[in-house]
């Protein structure tokens, strides 16, 4: 087992290194001089030269990469162009918002998707099964930005149930120590802030959850069908065990393994979906930040955030693989 984990860990290293090279290369593919972008239109040649030196742009590219990676390994992602912010600090401020949104979407997807999948499998070919499967296909076919806009126009503009965007009502003053507004307000027992946060979270979380929800429902169904068809389940039926015991105790527990895997693998998709969802709902997370930075050509931010997201995806996949191996010894042998 230790050997397997070590192998997997080692295989992640070249991937992360490759991502860093790819991302670093991005900034050099881009037409234009970062120093001029930083200084603006009226930069004098002297100040451009000075900034190039201070950014290390006058050094050979491999050396620049070395310096950048040296900083990255120390947790320093550099400085943004437009507002000269410390990117690592900004990232830490914004990432919790994205985690809140992604987790809420994932929880929603699991809470609705697993029961729906179990039901569909148990009542195979019933109207419920067919309906759920069709709906789940509609779910994955839905452009997330369209769904978001339609929800906004219905629930915010027409009905006024939910706010159109943002994370908290502007007049609410809340000092969040961890930047996880939901968690902090809950810990402090500040219900006004917590409920306000929850209301702001609801629509973006629903919009973001559609695709993972559909995938989890389908995955649960097919995993359940698998398990329900196996001998030990048939034996359980034959023994005359109660329906709920068979389905939930014997079948679901075993079917959950692939479902959890799939749920874990949705992280990358959620982060990508967050770009659109956060933009539409003005949710102050890293998805909206990276998109706006691309538009503003603030490449150090794009570089830093992309690297961060990629590292996250690699690590999550690694954790999923390793936990899978823990649960299913056959994998280790491959």
């Amino acid at each position: 087992m230790a050997g397997y984990i070590l192998r997997r860990l080692l295989s992640a290293v070249p991937v992360l290194l490759g991502v860093s090279i790819l991302v670093f290369a991005f900034i050099h593919f881009i037409p234009g001089d970062p120093a001029i972008a930083m200084l603006g239109e009226r930069a004098t040649p002297e100040s451009v030269a000075r900034v190039r030196t201070s950014l290390g742009l006058d050094k050979p590219i491999w050396e620049q990469y070395g310096i950048y990676m040296g900083k990255v390994l120390r947790g320093d992602l550099g400085t943004s162009i437009l507002r000269r912010d410390n990117i690592s600090q900004e990232l830490l401020k914004r990432f919790p918002a994205t985690v809140e949104l992604a987790l809420a979407a994932l929880v929603l997807a699991i809470l609705l998707g697993i029961p729906a999948g179990v039901f569909s499998a148990v009542k195979r070919n019933s109207w419920f099964d067919n309906g759920t499967m069709l709906l789940s296909l509609v779910g994955v076919s839905m452009p997330i930005f369209w769904l978001g806009l339609m929800m906004q126009s219905l629930f915010s503009v027409a009905l006024g149930w939910f706010p159109t965007g943002a994370r908290l009502t502007a007049t609410l003053k809340f000092q969040s120590t961890t930047n996880f507004v939901g968690l902090d307000s809950l810990l402090q027992g500040n219900w006004v802030v917590f409920l306000d946060w929850l209301r702001h979270l609801t629509m973006p979380a629903i919009a973001l959850s559609t695709i993972p929800l559909a995938i989890i429902a389908r995955m649960t169904r097919s995993a359940m069908l698998d398990v329900l068809g196996q001998d030990y389940v048939r034996t359980a039926w034959a023994k005359g065990l109660r329906w709920s015991t068979v389905v939930l105790k014997h079948a679901l527990r075993n079917a959950l393994l692939p479902v959890v895997t799939v749920a874990g693998l949705q992280i990358g998709r959620l982060l990508a979906g967050a770009i659109l969802t956060e933009t539409i709902f003005s949710w102050p997370g890293i998805g909206r930040w990276v998109y706006e930075s691309i538009l503003a050509r603030d490449y150090p931010i794009v570089q830093g955030v992309t690297l961060f997201i990629a590292a996250l995806v690699v690590i999550v996949n690694l954790v999923v693989d390793i936990s899978y191996a823990f649960l299913d010894p056959r994998i280790r042998l491959q």
Partner: peptide, 21 residues
Amino acid sequence: RGMDILMAVPDLLLAIVIVAI
């Protein structure tokens, strides 16, 4: 490993960056 590298960056983000370039 090259494919792993491409897959590490979420599809839409990678696509946006490519178009931005």
